[in-house]
Amino acid sequence: MIRAILKRQEWTQMRVADRLGVSQSTVNRWIKGADPEGRHRDAIRDFYAEIFGDFSASPKAIDRQENTSRIPDLAIFGGLGNGGFLDVTVDESGDFADPEHLRGYWTFPDYMVRAFRNMSNIYAWEVRGDSMDPTLSGGSVVFVDTKQNALPPNDIYALDYGDGLVVKRLKLIPRTDRIMVISDNERYGADELLRSDVHVYGRIVGWFQWR
């Protein structure tokens, strides 16, 4: 129930602990599997009922639903020219170790996410610059599947090849150990590098931008 409450409310462990009148370490133990006792168990059940209305859906069912429809929006940025940085860590329970790294969540109706069996590997963040125009404009938000870090012949990725986190098109050079890092904006060139010199965070599976 605690994990479901944290996800629904988008609260930190400390905030839930304050609400329940316990320490953060106690909440952390509950998340890891320890059973709350007595009045704490009742308080958690009451809080859960207040949030979700009733117990018709189990916490596990709610976790599954939210894992398939919510994407964390990270408080980092990826450059379209010179790069940003990627430095986000999670604790043992899978929550963001530093709440400042999370700006919120993107939510989607089920029909839009059916192609993805597991959304827990997808993150969103803002991109800046103009080197990927007209495909991606500065200020767009990209959705990155961090499990898709193998390289097909031609696609757009979040990567680092020496200047920090960037979003670029990658194109393998067949029968070689080299790869092209390409800007879609014709004013910018392409770099030919060793594949081993390019660290791929994940494939861009979608993006949002205002017109």
Rank of each mutant, 00 (worst) to 15 (best):
1 M>C: 03
2 I>S: 05
4 A>N: 12
4 A>Q: 10
5 I>D: 04
7 K>P: 01
8 R>E: 15
8 R>N: 03
14 M>G: 12
17 A>W: 04
18 D>N: 15
19 R>P: 00
19 R>Q: 13
20 L>D: 11
21 G>T: 11
22 V>Y: 05
23 S>F: 01
24 Q>N: 12
24 Q>L: 00
27 V>Y: 03
28 N>K: 08
28 N>G: 13
29 R>N: 07
30 W>G: 08
32 K>G: 07
34 A>I: 00
38 G>D: 07
39 R>S: 11
41 R>A: 15
41 R>W: 01
41 R>H: 03
43 A>F: 04
43 A>P: 00
44 I>L: 15
47 F>A: 09
51 I>W: 09
52 F>L: 04
53 G>S: 10
55 F>N: 12
55 F>L: 11
56 S>D: 14
57 A>T: 08
60 K>I: 02
61 A>S: 10
62 I>V: 10
62 I>D: 05
64 R>K: 12
64 R>N: 07
64 R>F: 03
66 E>L: 15
66 E>S: 14
67 N>E: 05
68 T>W: 00
70 R>S: 01
70 R>T: 07
72 P>H: 11
72 P>Q: 13
73 D>H: 11
73 D>P: 00
74 L>M: 02
74 L>T: 06
76 I>R: 05
76 I>H: 13
78 G>W: 05
80 L>Q: 15
80 L>P: 02
83 G>C: 06
84 G>M: 04
85 F>L: 05
88 V>D: 06
88 V>I: 10
91 D>I: 08
93 S>V: 03
97 A>R: 14
98 D>H: 07
102 L>A: 06
102 L>M: 11
107 T>R: 08
107 T>Y: 07
109 P>L: 01
109 P>F: 03
111 Y>H: 14
112 M>G: 00
113 V>L: 03
114 R>I: 08
119 M>H: 01
120 S>W: 00
122 I>G: 03
123 Y>K: 15
130 D>L: 12
131 S>M: 06
139 G>H: 02
140 S>M: 09
144 V>Q: 07
147 K>V: 03
147 K>T: 09
151 L>T: 08
152 P>C: 07
152 P>H: 10
153 P>E: 14
154 N>P: 00
159 L>I: 15
160 D>E: 07
161 Y>R: 05
162 G>C: 07
163 D>P: 00
164 G>Y: 05
167 V>P: 04
167 V>K: 00
168 K>P: 03
169 R>I: 02
172 L>T: 15
173 I>E: 14
176 T>L: 08
178 R>I: 07
178 R>A: 04
179 I>A: 04
180 M>W: 10
182 I>D: 01
185 N>Y: 08
186 E>T: 14
188 Y>C: 01
194 L>Y: 00
197 D>F: 08
203 R>E: 04
204 I>K: 03
204 I>Y: 05
205 V>T: 05
206 G>F: 08
211 R>K: 07
